[in-house]
């Protein structure tokens, strides 16, 4: 209930909020390469005003990834603002990514 009430407020203020994202990839695996490209495109288009993106290569930091609960790659975590969200896949389904990130799709 409370979330529902807060959501419109956030959307209004969402333009100024910095979205913190972390993308886990597995080296040069095709899905990982695609995911980076797709996410960058989404950020350019929808999160112009402010976002922080960290890309973690699981092949290089397997323990960290495990500690952070990563299972499959690529995997995107929205850390802030709350609520947190997790998206897996190469992020080719833009609508689903936007929904998960809580960003309004301009096309709608």
């Amino acid at each position: 209930m409370s979330r529902r009430r807060r959501t419109p407020k956030k959307r209004g203020a969402g333009v100024t909020t910095v979205v913190v994202l972390r993308l886990y990839i597995a080296g040069g695996a095709p899905n990982s390469v695609q995911a980076i490209a797709n996410l960058q495109a989404i950020c350019r288009e929808y999160l112009k005003d402010g976002h922080k993106l960290e890309v973690v290569d699981v092949l290089e930091h397997p323990r960290r990834a495990m500690a952070e609960g990563v299972l499959v790659t690529p995997s995107l975590a929205k850390l802030s603002p709350l609520p947190a969200a997790n998206v897996i896949g190469n992020l080719s389904d833009k609508a689903k990514v936007l929904l998960a990130l809580g960003v309004k799709d301009k096309a709608q």
Binding site: Q34, P62, R63
Partner: peptide, 24 residues
């Protein structure tokens, strides 16, 4: 155990998981 709230947006693979398991 994948959370039911997890959103799947596109194809994924197990390369990352296997890398983590290899480290373990």
């Amino acid at each position: 155990h994948l959370s039911p709230t997890l959103v799947k947006a596109g194809d994924f693979d197990l390369a990352g998981m296997l890398a983590m398991l290899a480290a373990k």
